[in-house]
Computed example of a mutant assay.
Amino acid sequence: MKRISIYLLPALLVLSLFATGCLSNKTSNPVPYPIGTFEGQFRLLHKKLNETKIDTLKKANIQLVLETGGAYKVLGDTATVHAGSKGQYGINATYMAFNDETYPKTGTPVKIHLYGNYFYNYDGSTNLVILVNQGDTLNYRYDLKRVN
């Protein structure tokens, strides 16, 4: 009988750990997607160059309705800061993409629209945070809670 070299033992240990990890057949839970009516604040956050303080330039209380079929609408305080909007949205585990039907085809809109690709974080039941970076110093943040 030949002896196994002591140098092969770490490799055999790693190989056995990988092999036992593949034996179990666990399924992961699907990511819960936000559906329903959410209310909360929209904030326009601005960070000045060479400063650490972040200013909340504008804010508005809004309501976001996300429907099962992929339609959405923004309601609430849409008079000055944030535009009321509606359209279709798509979602995956990290991003939400909004296609606002009310977004102007030409020119720059006066108010902010929920339009484009956004990062989001949803706790699965109540809290929804939607965030987009507009360059290095400007962020749009939606802090919303599910109400229905």
Rank of each mutant, 00 (worst) to 15 (best):
G87T: 07
K86L: 13
E67M: 04
N139M: 13
K53Y: 12
H46Q: 08
K47M: 10
G124H: 07
T78V: 11
N127C: 01
A93Y: 07
Y122L: 04
T106D: 10
A60Y: 08
L144F: 11
L64C: 04
E67L: 09
N148P: 08
K58E: 15
D136W: 03
G124I: 05
Q134L: 13
D143P: 02
V81Q: 05
T80N: 12
F18W: 11
T78G: 08
N25K: 14
Y72T: 04
C22H: 08
D143M: 09
Q63V: 14
Y140P: 02
V14A: 15
F119S: 14
K111I: 06
I112R: 12
L13V: 14
N127I: 06
G69K: 07
K26F: 11
F18S: 12
T56D: 09
F38H: 00
T94E: 14
V129G: 00
V74D: 00
M1H: 12
S85M: 03
I54K: 10
M1G: 15
K2V: 08
K86G: 09
T137D: 12
A79W: 04
L44N: 10
L23G: 07
H82T: 15
I54G: 07
G76V: 05
G69W: 01
V129E: 10
V110H: 09
G40F: 03
Y72H: 02
T27I: 06
L144N: 05
V129N: 12
G76C: 01
A60Q: 06
T37R: 11
L12P: 04
L49K: 15
K86C: 02
Y120L: 08
N99W: 02
G107W: 05
H82L: 14
A19N: 10
G76T: 03
P109Q: 05
L45V: 06
N133K: 14
F98L: 04
A79I: 08
T78R: 01
N133W: 08
L17T: 13
H46T: 07
F38N: 03
L17K: 04
I35N: 02
R146L: 13
I91L: 12
G107A: 03
L144D: 02
N92G: 09
R3E: 12
V129Q: 10
N148C: 03
S24I: 10
Y118V: 05
F42Y: 15
V81W: 03
Y7D: 10
T126V: 13
S125M: 06
G70V: 06
L17A: 15
H82G: 01
S16T: 15
T37W: 00
D123Y: 07
S125L: 07
N148Q: 14
Y115M: 10
N99P: 00
G36L: 01
F119I: 11
R43H: 05
Y120W: 06
F119Q: 13
V74R: 00
Y72M: 04
Y118W: 11
I112S: 09
S85Q: 02
V65P: 00
Q134V: 12
V31D: 00
L66Y: 04
G107I: 05
Q41A: 06
T56C: 13
M96P: 05
T106I: 07
K2M: 04
S16W: 07
I112E: 05
N121A: 12
G69R: 08
G40W: 01
L66T: 03
